[in-house]
Design a binder for these strands. Sequence first.
DNA 1: ATAGGAAATTGACGACCCGTCACGGATCGT
DNA 2: ACGATCCGTGACGGGTCGTCAATTTCCTAT
Lengths: 222, 222
Amino acid sequence: MDSSLAKPAPAVRAEPLGKREQTKVQNRELILDAARKVFAELGFGATTVRDIIRATPLASGTFYNYFKSKEEVYQAIQDDVALAIRPRLRDLRKTAKSVDEFISGTFRTFMEFIAEDHTNVHAMRHSVETTRIRVDTPEVVAGFEELREDIEKAIQEGLFPPVDADYLMASVVGVAFEVAERMVLREPRDPAAAAAFATALFMGGIRMLPNADRPAAQTGEA
Amino acid sequence: MDSSLAKPAPAVRAEPLGKREQTKVQNRELILDAARKVFAELGFGATTVRDIIRATPLASGTFYNYFKSKEEVYQAIQDDVALAIRPRLRDLRKTAKSVDEFISGTFRTFMEFIAEDHTNVHAMRHSVETTRIRVDTPEVVAGFEELREDIEKAIQEGLFPPVDADYLMASVVGVAFEVAERMVLREPRDPAAAAAFATALFMGGIRMLPNADRPAAQTGEA
DNA sequence: ATAGGAAATTGACGACCCGTCACGGATCGT
DNA sequence: ACGATCCGTGACGGGTCGTCAATTTCCTAT
């Protein structure tokens, strides 16, 4: 239950930056931090640009020096997430020696990341809103295509059978997001179990799925 | 209330509605039609309530006699879709005699519906917007839970192994939506192939997936 | 060290959207 | 035919949007 604010720590190396560049970076982070907070509080739909700048010491006009709209802010936040998880996934799949390693590694990495970093995901899925949102930024889309390329490469190497890589990628993405969403609602949160489920499904279909020990994991909503 | 007599009762489809109720229904449909058009044109995010009423002969105040917000209009539209597809899915699964029938029927019905009725789905996913939206109305959620209940029932009847019904439902939903989205982008549109892919995945995992004959399925020409 | 210039911040502004509500015309029951 | 009721209407106060001229802050060349 770490409720501590995740301070992104903008690479505090030496600071040969001029004051200009410095406050530029600082203001951008100021806006992003405020946006993360407000999005989580009000949900994306109800949030206005004014709400965000009101949560900073800046003036309204300054916002537009950094972003064109609240959509762009949201994209920047999502890009940060994508940039954080993509290297992990890529490295993992690069060293995969079998289909099982490839698939299970992908799901496990993804589920663990979501389980830890639920702050960013929380903004994505706000309980107040019935309308869910998913932003496919260039960075996120690149992550998807990276997956498809890795699948195609695996096919060429004979690791995978020659399946429809596009549909398979879509299936992985769909299961990953949808199952992850249910996972974070359960108590205790168990990314390993969620990953195991998804992996079994892809490795052997329904028949290979692990049995559900518990009678009902979580039916009614609290 | 029956009109004792002397009520002309126009033979048109047994509509003994008063003028009041009649225009009420008419106005509602007027707004919904306009909304479908505008959503498809501008995307959900960019659409305003004013845009919708401007596309009708009504005044702005009238809108709020029928809906509270554009979100509510969108929900009504989605509910119509859910109400159209749910009976199909339910009937199908009720008569399923095996896991294969259950799963393949679900995917085939869903894919065919999406392939036909892409107008409503088109509003859901507008190319102009990078931010995708999915509204889980009570009606849509009910459809999901219906699926979960059917899975649980199938488990009790010994049709399915005792898997985690919640995660399995989530997986079906995730694959269905994500693959369907790719399907409508391909030319020619082939719901049967998409359903076959998804079914094979669930029945036997990756190893059972049909081989991809074509190297690149999409973007032939045009 | 300082002056001139570039860059960034500020907040006010016109345009627009939101949801409400008093008004008045259309429709209902009798 | 006649009140009572319903409901469409459009203007209104409050708020947001994106812009921009004025001003402050920082940089650089002398």
